[in-house]
């Protein structure tokens, strides 16, 4: 169609105008904007919140143990009298750090594998894609658990284990983008002027593949949070007194189910839920923003 001639065949996110367009489309997605606001609030809260509250997460105060939410303790206290709000905020910082680190790590792996497969092609591409298939077939939660108990629970082992089994989507997307983009004129033109392969791959093709990568990365944060939480919930993640949201839920099981201390379970889970829901909405909004052809139904 003639529209292909009118609109430049440049990927959306490359030009400043394109970026503005993407932002405009994102803003139209009300839930995504709301999700972004919720995420920003939570991020701010876990970063500076603990400093503003007069308790710290390790102070034991048996006199005020097992209290339901009150003005003094907005999320109640646990069986050692620790303030639950501070524990939730501290745990959130750990949860979010693990998730963000794991996503960054898996992005690096995914982008490198995908770019190499897509750009080099041929037998190497074939082999790499079979490796992706193998990783897809392995049940990630099981392998993550296994790796963590083999290496020992800690920040980096957990991040690595999660990242090691979540890079495949990125790799496939990046590969697909590379396969289509490397046929495009501007890449041909760059190659014609004698620009090196690495430079073409990084400077000319990668920006064009950025849209889908951003979307996958965003949704990857939700998946990473759920992975880490599941691991901690099974008691196989961080060891006390460090507790992520999943860890807090692990500790909360008996108090909630046998003693009815509902606040112990409600708040950490609510945080996971809010973050994952927001991330999913933001991801949805981003997908529409970077790919205007995909119409929301």
């Amino acid at each position: 169609m003639s529209s292909a001639l009118v609109t430049p065949a440049v990927p959306v996110v490359r030009s400043a105008r394109g970026r503005f367009e993407a932002w405009r489309r994102f803003r139209r997605h009300r839930m995504a904007v709301l999700g972004l606001a919720v995420l920003a609030t939570i991020a701010l809260a876990v970063l500076v919140g603990p400093l503003l509250i007069g308790y710290d997460s390790e102070t034991i105060a048996l006199a005020s143990k097992n209290q339901p939410p009150s003005l003094a303790h907005l999320m109640g206290t646990d069986e050692l009298g620790r303030d639950q709000l501070v524990r939730v905020l501290d745990g959130g910082r750990l949860t979010l750090s693990v998730a963000v680190s794991a996503v960054v790590f898996s992005l690096v792996v995914g982008v490198v594998v995908g770019a190499v497969a897509g750009y080099v092609g041929g037998a190497l591409d074939n082999v790499l894609m079979r490796v992706v298939d193998v990783f897809y077939s392995l049940p990630s939660l099981f392998v993550v658990i296994l790796l963590v108990i083999l290496v020992g629970a800690g920040f980096w082992p957990i991040v690595t284990a999660i990242a090691l089994f979540s890079w495949m989507n990125t790799a496939r997307l990046v590969r697909a983008s590379y396969l289509t983009l490397k046929q495009r004129e501007f890449v041909e033109a760059a190659r014609g002027t004698g620009v090196g392969h690495l430079r073409i791959a990084v400077r000319h093709i990668l920006p064009g593949a950025l849209g889908p990568i951003i979307v996958t990365a965003t949704l990857g944060i939700a998946a990473a949070i759920l992975s880490e939480s599941a691991l901690s919930f099974l008691g196989l993640g961080f060891q006390p007194p460090q507790a992520t949201w999943g860890g807090l839920l692990y500790e909360a099981q008996r108090p909630v189910v046998s003693l009815g201390h509902w606040w112990r379970g409600l708040f950490p889970g609510l945080m996971i839920f809010l973050v994952v829901l927001s991330v999913n909405y933001v991801g949805d909004g981003l997908r529409d923003a970077v790919d205007p052809k995909r119409r929301r139904s």
């Binding site: 939480s229 999943g246 909630v256 009815g260 379970g265 839920f273 829901l277």
Partner: peptide
């Protein structure tokens, strides 16, 4: 899709079993 199953499980137990 955004509800962690373990949280859902604990809260269900609280409502239907404990309460």
């Amino acid at each position: 899709l955004s509800t962690p199953s373990f949280w859902f499980g604990i809260m269900l137990l609280y409502v239907f079993s404990f309460q």
